[in-house]
């Protein structure tokens, strides 16, 4: 468990760093566009590049947010349960979440494959969009990995009857 935990942490953190770079890049791009167009002309394709960077920064952040328990939940009821029962509830919830995150990742890959075949591209710079869709799918896949870790933890909680791992 310790190794799995560390490994999941390491890869989601690395992934989130891509998102951090994308956020800094999107800010610089928009500012550069403003500074460039006032005296001269806009940076071509700013809107489409912003959209791509936005997808990168958000999708790489989703799994990290789950790792940090950053997706908002309502804990009032379950917190009052004994640890074993909490483990049961969390097992069910993580299993459902994992199933749907997996479906979402799988379907996003299929969507990317379809757009690759049809040749969806941005309007101005003609950048193909399918790699971005694949990257978003990768983000959901990472989310599924974190949820799998959560599921294993929840099952351990049922077995051991405490949160300590």
């Amino acid at each position: 468990m310790g190794i799995l935990d560390k490994f999941v942490r390491m890869i989601t953190w690395r992934t989130a760093q891509i998102g951090q770079a994308a956020l800094a890049a999107v800010m610089l791009l928009i500012v550069a566009n403003i500074f460039s167009r006032i005296p001269w002309k806009p940076v071509p394709g700013t809107v489409e590049l912003t959209e791509i960077l936005g997808a990168v920064l958000l999708t790489t952040g989703v799994a990290y947010t789950q790792l940090m328990k950053g997706h908002i939940f309502v804990g009032v009821l379950v917190e009052k349960f004994p640890p074993r029962l909490q483990g049961v509830v969390d097992t069910i919830v993580s299993a459902i979440s994992l199933f749907f995150a997996g479906l979402l990742a799988k379907e996003t890959i299929a969507f990317g494959a379809k757009m690759a075949q049809r040749g969806w591209a941005t309007a101005d710079l003609l950048i193909p969009i399918y790699p971005v869709i694949y990257l978003v799918a990768f983000g959901f896949l990472m989310l599924a990995v974190v949820l799998l870790k959560d599921l294993i933890k929840a099952i351990m909680m049922i077995i051991k009857g405490s949160e300590a791992l």
């Binding site: 167009r37 002309k41 806009p42 809107v47 309007a123 101005d124």
Partner: peptide, 23 residues
């Protein structure tokens, strides 16, 4: 700076306007 989207971008470029794409 003229808001232009999609297929009309090349025409506006050819006319030496500066196409700006925005929603």
């Amino acid at each position: 700076q003229i808001r232009t989207v999609g297929g009309t971008v090349p025409s506006m470029k050819a006319l030496e306007a500066t196409p700006v794409s925005m929603p």
